[in-house]
């Protein structure tokens, strides 16, 4: 690790991950610790405000945002296993009067889990074993918001921070999908306000993974996975779902 003295990293766990996917949060914590980081979970953290803001109520999230800034102010870094929440904090949280400096600092020190590993602690490869066929769901906010991987729309050199972390795992087969980065249709409140479309988009994504004989569908945002898994379970599909942090944690142990 190149950073010194040992920085103090705060874990930000999105509320639905806290409630429904504790293992994702545990895995995130464990991987960071295995990589030598000093990590704490501030207990009084709450939601980042994204669901409200994306539904058109950004102005009602000033309090949430203020609390968020104050909660994480003392840490050197904030790391979250969700690209979507990180983009929200950086780009859509309303300005909080009196905390301009802290808010600006927060925007520079908050990172999504994979980019923190590849770009900040600069881990070149992770060794371990995970002999499974993996389909990666590239969540839009992480991909096009944080540029965690190249966009198929852009004329740029292909890259994927997630692939970089997974590709050296022994036995792991990385599957190339037909539509590499199409949205799954979750989209926050879109999932209920446009239910028919949301589900169709999810089914289409799942079809792409099935067509390539994917065994485990993974990704960096549990919200997308929750939606896809919900559809797959209802249809009794035998696809498995894991957050990328869970795969890394299992592989590294």
């Amino acid at each position: 690790m190149s950073i010194k003295p040992k920085p103090h990293i705060a874990l930000f766990i999105p509320c639905y991950v806290d409630q429904f996917y504790p293992n994702v949060a545990i895995s995130t914590l464990a991987v960071l610790e295995k990589l030598g980081c000093q990590v704490s979970y501030p207990m009084n953290q709450t939601c980042c405000g994204q669901p409200m803001a994306n539904a058109g109520f950004e102005r009602d999230t000033v309090g949430t945002t203020k609390h968020f800034i104050e909660t994480f102010a003392v840490y050197d870094y904030v790391v979250a296993p969700s690209g979507s929440c990180v983009v929200h904090v950086k780009e859509h949280s309303p300005k909080v009067e009196g905390l301009e400096k802290e808010q600006a600092e927060l925007h520079d020190k908050i990172f999504e889990f994979t980019e923190f590993i590849t770009d900040i602690i600069k881990i070149e490869r992770i060794d371990g074993s995970f002999p499974h066929r993996i389909g990666y769901h590239s969540s839009c906010h992480g991909q096009r918001g944080l540029r965690l991987s190249s966009s198929s729309e852009l004329n740029e050199k292909p890259f994927s921070k997630a692939k970089k972390l997974l590709e050296n795992l022994e036995g792991l087969e990385w599957v190339e999908l037909t539509r590499t980065d199409e949205c799954c249709g979750f989209g926050g409140t879109f999932a209920v306000s446009e239910e028919a479309l949301s589900v169709q988009m999810g089914k289409d994504r799942l079809d792409d993974h099935h067509a390539h004989q994917v065994e485990i569908l993974t990704g960096g945002d549990m919200s997308c996975i929750m939606h896809l898994q919900g559809i797959a379970q209802r249809q009794n599909q035998n696809l498995k779902f894991k957050h990328l942090a869970e795969i890394l944690n299992e592989a590294m142990s």
Partner: peptide, 10 residues
């Protein structure tokens, strides 16, 4: 609201 804000359009 007829969007997931996926950003592909941009």
């Amino acid at each position: 609201f007829a969007s997931t804000l996926c950003g592909s359009c941009t």
